[in-house]
């Protein structure tokens, strides 16, 4: 499915690396000569536990910089899920963490055990890379290679292999 403009919201709690995941997504899109805007939650809001990155990827100029019509939401906490479940169109995919989120079973809700898989991979911190893999599977607007390249650039060298593995797991296991 090819769209002119995609709006991604990655929401969850601090420490899940969502801002970094947003940056990887954004930079990968830039490397594919797309237009990109990334915004994040700030200040006390982010310190209170809630964390959110918004990424808009487009083939053309992006004017409004906020995700007013998200196509895709990653919800890695109940709060994140609840914030959006009633405020998005039915076409919007909400990919939630099966282990921590109780879904309303919207038409486009998709659950996956992000936390569990990350722990099984040996480090709960790779949850964002698992999520990136899953996002790419469900929204194939970017080449996997450009995301993998940016993961390698943005992450400290010693954690790259584990994150690449996490990305593969997310990509492989999440089904459209």
């Amino acid at each position: 499915m090819k769209k002119k403009q995609w709006q991604f919201i990655l929401a969850g709690t601090g420490g899940q690396g969502l801002i970094l995941a947003g940056a990887v997504l954004a930079k990968a899109a830039i490397s594919e000569a797309k237009k990109v805007i990334q915004t994040s939650s700030y200040g006390a809001q982010s310190r209170g536990g809630f964390s959110q990155a918004e990424v808009i990827i487009s083939d053309g100029e992006i004017y409004f910089m906020k995700c007013d019509k998200p196509n895709f939401i990653l919800a890695l906490s109940q709060a994140a899920y609840d914030k959006y479940k009633d405020n998005v169109t039915s076409e919007c995919i909400i990919l939630y963490d099966h282990d921590t989120v109780i879904s309303n079973k919207r038409m486009n809700d998709k659950g996956y055990s992000f936390n569990q898989r990350a722990i099984e991979l040996g480090n709960s911190k790779v949850i964002n890379s698992v999520a990136l893999g899953a996002i790419l599977k469900l929204c194939p607007i970017l080449e996997n290679e450009s995301v993998i390249r940016k993961l390698k650039e943005e992450l400290p060298e010693k954690v790259v292999p584990l994150n690449l593995e996490a990305f593969e797991v997310g990509y492989r296991e999440v089904t459209p």
Partner: peptide
């Protein structure tokens, strides 16, 4: 403003 200050763009 906060939006222009904080958003990332090319």
């Amino acid at each position: 403003d906060e939006v222009i200050g904080h958003m990332k763009e090319d």
